[in-house]
Simulated assay, not measured.
Amino acid sequence: MSVYELIAILGLTSYAIYQQTRRHEVVARTRVKLTFIYLAVGLLIGGMHLPSTPLAAVFLVISILLSLIVGQIRGRLTRLWVEDGKVYSQGTPLTVAIFLGLIASKFVLGTIAYFTHASDTGGIGEILIMLAIMMAIQAELIHRRAMRLEDEPVVGDASLA
């Protein structure tokens, strides 16, 4: 891993944690902004390589499944609420820990793949692309949850009488 890759992953991880822990309005058109940032940087610093062995394909499938599962979990556990007619979201310590755990698992999978000679082509770019998959799933779930919250009647609303 080069110094530039390390700086990229640390910068993007710090930014993602900041974004997760701050309160922000759920806005449909910007829900995948962070996903595209991770995807673009991942492609720029190495991208993905097709698996060259069956074991490498297994590692890739495990990595994709982890991203999908964690995206589902985080999308369901992110805190949502309505305030002044707008839906807001904020990550929790648990969702941040799950995010960091996913990153750590990607490094562990890559290390195991390298030492078992399953693959030596994976890198930071591939990790960022897998994180982008997780973020896309999470963003879509949060958006759908937010839409349901927007549709719920407000208790005490005079227009319901």
Rank of each mutant, 00 (worst) to 15 (best):
H24L: 11
E25N: 04
E25Q: 14
V26H: 00
V26R: 00
V26W: 00
V27F: 03
A28I: 05
R29V: 08
R29L: 09
T30V: 09
T30P: 04
T30Y: 07
R31T: 03
R31C: 02
V32Y: 13
K33I: 05
L34Y: 01
F36V: 09
F36Q: 03
F36N: 05
Y38K: 04
V41E: 02
V41F: 05
G47A: 13
M48C: 08
M48F: 10
H49V: 08
H49W: 10
H49Q: 13
H49D: 10
H49E: 12
L50N: 15
P51C: 08
S52P: 01
S52Y: 04
S52A: 15
P54Y: 12
P54E: 13
L55I: 06
A56N: 10
A57R: 09
V58I: 15
V58W: 06
F59W: 09
L60C: 04
V61Q: 08
V61K: 04
V61I: 13
I62P: 02
S63E: 07
L65N: 03
L66Y: 08
L68A: 03
I69P: 02
I69N: 03
V70I: 13
G71T: 04
G71S: 11
Q72L: 14
R74S: 08
L80P: 00
L80V: 14
W81G: 09
W81L: 05
V87K: 03
V87Q: 01
Y88H: 12
G91C: 07
G91E: 00
P93F: 10
L94A: 14
L94E: 10
F99P: 01
L100S: 08
G101T: 09
G101M: 08
I103D: 00
A104V: 14
A104Q: 12
A104C: 12
S105H: 08
S105T: 13
L109P: 01
I112Q: 11
A113P: 01
F115S: 11
